[in-house]
């Protein structure tokens, strides 16, 4: 009886974390399996389940502030410094990867994007941007800061969840390597700066440059 009571007490103390975890799981499951008929609905689904639902959960249920979940520009100096460092490090690492592996041949960019600069810009700044932001907000914002009681392990937790979802949704390929790398390095930047916006910005820049370089190599 005491064990049960103690268990229940422990449970009650962590119920917010448990519920938040369940909500996060539902968000991931719904973003993966909620039925859609076209690409537009797909994009909308991701935005609703990976952005709006966590935002509403934070505001209405947890009665929290989005800035406490990384939606802020506090620690600008650290953000700029760490973001720049992470950006450079990513570039160097991937330059080496491209240089010494067959990564570029496995990194697919749509011929439309490849052949038309206007479409490339549109793709990167609109379509990829929306996709990347939702990923950043959910994993590095909602998940990471929900698991902040676990300190730096929260970075690994959100990166692990991201990798799991990536591998489970499609067969493993080098196509996902940049984003997996960003989930780790960006997660660390987020943890340190208490804001996912810096990792989002440098991550977006990094992907644009990576794609441009790959296109250059292919052409």
């Amino acid at each position: 009886m005491q064990t049960i009571t103690a268990y229940l007490e422990k449970l009650s103390a962590h119920k917010e974390l448990l519920v938040t975890s369940l909500v996060a799981v539902f968000c991931i499951l719904l973003s993966a399996f909620f039925p859609t008929d076209n690409q537009f609905q797909l994009i909308s689904k991701n935005i609703f389940f990976l952005v709006f639902l966590p935002m509403l959960y934070i505001k209405l249920i947890l009665k929290g502030n989005l800035s406490d979940w990384g939606w802020n520009f506090e620690n600008k100096k650290e953000g700029a410094l760490l973001g720049a460092l992470a950006f450079l490090a990513s570039l160097i690492i991937f330059y080496l990867i491209i240089r010494f592996t067959t990564f570029s041949s496995h990194y697919t960019i749509s011929p439309l994007v490849r052949n038309n600069f206007g479409i490339f810009i549109l793709y990167e700044l609109v379509f990829f941007n929306i996709f990347f932001f939702t990923q950043e907000f959910f994993f590095k914002g909602f998940l990471l800061f929900s698991f902040r009681p676990f300190f730096v392990y929260s970075v690994l937790i959100q990166a692990g969840v991201y990798c799991a979802t990536t591998f489970l949704s499609s067969s493993p390929s080098l196509q996902a390597l940049p984003l997996i790398f960003l989930s780790l390095i960006g997660g660390y930047v987020t943890y340190k700066t208490r804001s996912f916006l810096y990792s989002y910005i440098f991550g977006l820049l990094f992907i644009i440059i990576l794609d441009a370089y790959i296109i250059h190599l292919v052409k």
């Binding site: 229940l8 119920k15 519920v19 909620f34 249920i61």
Partner: peptide
């Protein structure tokens, strides 16, 4: 219109999740 129906489904789903989470959080086993 298909998109409106889609939005309706999403809103209902989100509402259900929020309601359920609120219900669970407001329930204390002790």
């Amino acid at each position: 219109p298909a998109y409106l129906a889609f939005l309706l489904r999403i809103v209902l789903t989100i509402s259900l999740i929020l309601f359920t989470s609120q219900l669970v959080l407001s329930f204390s086993p002790i």
